[in-house]
Amino acid sequence: MFIYTREAHPAEDVQHHDSFARKLAGATLLRDETGISRDILVDDLAGTVHRAYGMMPNMTWVIGRGGRVAYKANWTSAANVEAFLIRFLAARAKHPPETTAVMYETQQVEFRYADRKRFTERLLRNGPRATAEFAKAQQLWADRPPS
């Protein structure tokens, strides 16, 4: 399931949402131009669902059967989600005899591989302003004191 949020890098050709009609048009553009085959759900104009789940531009959550959070990642890695699902479903389906499955949590750093060339092409698709604004943002990030 894909949850369509606000536009992360709006520009001249793909604009920010100023109406729900424009948001629906953006979701349709996503479906038609990227060929995404999953079902798409569209959040409301104020981002109610996006706010409740934490506002990151490309995050993934897995909700277990019955409605408890099983996985949250502040960036999407399909390989990571798939690996988690295999472990999660196997752990619930079977465990060694005479044992019970007890839930615990982990937090760990993961790595993804950013394709800068493809990202730049995507920014250009949004409009020239998107590239210039991202360059300014990179300078702002460089000027921030280390956390």
């Binding site: 399931m1 894909f2 949850i3 369509y4 949020t5 606000r6 536009e7 992360a8 890098h9 709006p10 520009a11 793909v14 953006g26 553009l29 996503l30 131009e33 990227t34 999953r38 996006h50 789940y53 990151m56 531009p57 490309n58 995050m59 993934t60 959550w61 897995v62 909700i63 999407t76 989600v81 699902l85 995507r122 920014l123 949004n126 998107a130």
Partner: peptide, 8 residues
């Protein structure tokens, strides 16, 4: 599985 995102 819920992936959040946009076109841009």
């Amino acid at each position: 599985v819920m992936e959040f995102g946009s076109f841009t």
